[in-house]
Computed example of a mutant assay.
Amino acid sequence: MAAFALAAMAAPASAQEPRECGTPASLADGWAVAAPADVAMDAKALCGLDAFISQWPGRNVHAVLIARHGKLVMERYYAGVDERMARPLGIVRFAADVKHDMRSVSKSVTSLLIGIALAEGRFPTLDSSVFDTFPQYGDLATPEKRRITFRDLLTMSAGLKWDESRGYADPLSNEYGLVEATDPFRYLLSQPMAAAPGTVYAYNGGATALLAAALAKGTGRSLNDYAREKLFVPLQVLDFDWDEMGVSHQLGAAGGLRLRPRDMLKLGQIMLTDGQWNGRRVLPPGWAAESATPRINGEGLYFYGYQWWLGRSFSRGHELTWTAAFGLGGQRLYIVPALDLVLAITAGHYGSGQGGSPLQAVIPSAILNGFVLPAVLRGSP
């Protein structure tokens, strides 16, 4: 109970932390800041965030940030129990300069890098067979498996029998098998087929890792180096960690990234602006929209694009579609194009299994639907 109580406390004020009610700090990181009224949001409603979050026992929310019309309008940090790649960190006092595990948000970032490499001619054609790029696994290429394309990997529809729902620690989990394998990609491609490629969604971190391996092969660069040069430096992100993991050095593409929440929010902003950050092009034209196009039925009511989740909310009689990056523990990046709005949430509901604690889905969804969307003023474009 003590940990839960601490998780609800705001971190002490510092030079880099926002003031009361989540007023954002003005830092030299590319974000312009604005008052809520300047972007047609209700300041009084935004000041109710602490009370809104406090209704959940065991809430353990770490940060909530909102950008609208390209300006940072709110950032709020808390103290809470956290971990780094399953290693307990105890109670962490979060602030604007403290990085957080992104977990599977990393998959969506990997997709952004693939778009950049495609435009440079340094990534295979999306509809080409993965075995054309990795001929060393040709002995596994049955006629059905040879139909697996990079587009199928992007949409989690390779058709391979795969189960990550048990959690990493379970030896029966394919995630465990992937990480422990001497050759992770042979392990991945040796799995039996469960469906025709491109027809059925099945969450598969190995698919993201194989995408990263193709990226490294095409660019001749490590994931870290390519991401730094092509994505993070243009976004004015100077402080990040990307644990590449495993003997192949690509397994971290599925979940090894750590960012400051302010920088996490930038990834959502370039999805709104056709890949531009402060007037500088970061993504190829059209890649953000292509990535956020529904490609296949995902889990539950979600559609799935290129490593991005696609969903909808209902607010004041209107249906609002959104694109999102999800990470275990409650890491969420929501992009709501109709409102020109981005929301970033970090939290510590890691739990066990692929789904983590039920709170990791309930609380971020409630923050979006019950707090942020209602704070947009009526009649606001």
Rank of each mutant, 00 (worst) to 15 (best):
A119S: 05
Q307A: 01
E120F: 12
G177Q: 15
A40T: 13
A366T: 14
Q360A: 15
F232A: 12
L235Q: 01
G70W: 07
E290P: 07
A43M: 07
P374R: 02
S380M: 13
G138L: 07
Y201T: 01
G138H: 11
Q331T: 08
L235M: 05
L189S: 05
K44V: 11
L172G: 12
R151F: 04
E120G: 14
Y350G: 03
A13V: 09
H249K: 08
P381R: 15
T110F: 01
F123W: 00
Y77R: 06
L301Q: 10
M193I: 10
F134T: 09
I335Q: 08
E319H: 02
L368Q: 03
I116F: 15
M102S: 07
S128D: 13
V372P: 10
V362E: 10
W287A: 08
R228G: 05
E229S: 14
G90M: 05
L310M: 04
L210Q: 06
P374I: 07
Y304G: 03
T293N: 10
G246A: 01
R295A: 13
A195T: 11
T182H: 05
S173H: 04
I345L: 06
F94G: 06
I116C: 15
V64Q: 12
W162H: 09
G353W: 14
G167F: 09
N297W: 06
S248H: 12
S352D: 14
A117R: 08
L341N: 00
A202R: 13
T125K: 09
N204Y: 10
D132N: 12
L27F: 07
G80Y: 11
P364A: 15
